[in-house]
Simulated scan of single mutants.
Amino acid sequence: MVSAQTRAEVEEHLGQVPSFIEALPEAAADHGWGMMRDFQLGETELSGREKALVGLGAAAAIQCPYCIHFHKAESTMEGASDAELTEAVGIASGVRYFSTVLHGSEIDLDAFERETEQIVEHVEGQQAAPGDD
């Protein structure tokens, strides 16, 4: 149950107190709203559109129909196109796929980190090289 102050603030921002906020235990309700307000909905380094697309990708990866519905609506509200929604879900599926391969194959993390550094160095070198015009 949210405090009266938080209830008023949530209603001002969202037009209502959603059931998922109401479902939070009293000790977490005000904090949960503050986290959502300040980080997810607030002004941060990522735009609202970018945060919504990240949320959609994460929701798809964890297969949460509630979060998928919310973040898809949020992404659309923030101006994301259908192609961008599809791409966000596609990126998340690739991350989940390769995470499964990495864990299932027990790839050495230190070796993977070294390979990643080498790949980044190579790609950055290619990007900095003059074109073949």
Rank of each mutant, 00 (worst) to 15 (best):
M77N: 10
S3F: 05
A58I: 12
L56E: 03
Q127G: 04
T6L: 06
W33L: 02
I107S: 01
S99W: 14
D133N: 06
A60N: 14
L109M: 07
D132Y: 09
S105I: 00
C67G: 01
A28F: 14
A27T: 11
S93M: 15
V120S: 09
H103Y: 03
H69A: 15
Q127W: 10
G104F: 05
D38P: 04
H31V: 14
F98T: 08
K72A: 10
A73I: 04
V2W: 02
E113S: 12
A58L: 07
A58E: 02
F39G: 03
E9P: 05
H13A: 11
H103L: 09
E106C: 12
V10M: 09
E106V: 08
E74G: 08
P25M: 02
A111N: 06
Q16A: 15
V120P: 04
G57W: 09
H31D: 06
P130E: 15
T100K: 15
V17D: 00
G94K: 11
A52M: 02
C67K: 00
M1S: 11
V89K: 08
F112A: 02
G42C: 03
S47N: 15
G104E: 07
R114W: 02
Q126K: 10
H69G: 13
A83H: 05
C64Y: 06
R37G: 01
V89G: 10
E45W: 11
L41D: 01
G55Y: 01
R37V: 04
A8P: 05
E50R: 07
Q118E: 14
E87S: 13
F112P: 00
E26K: 14
S47L: 12
G48Y: 02
V10F: 03
G131F: 15
P130K: 14
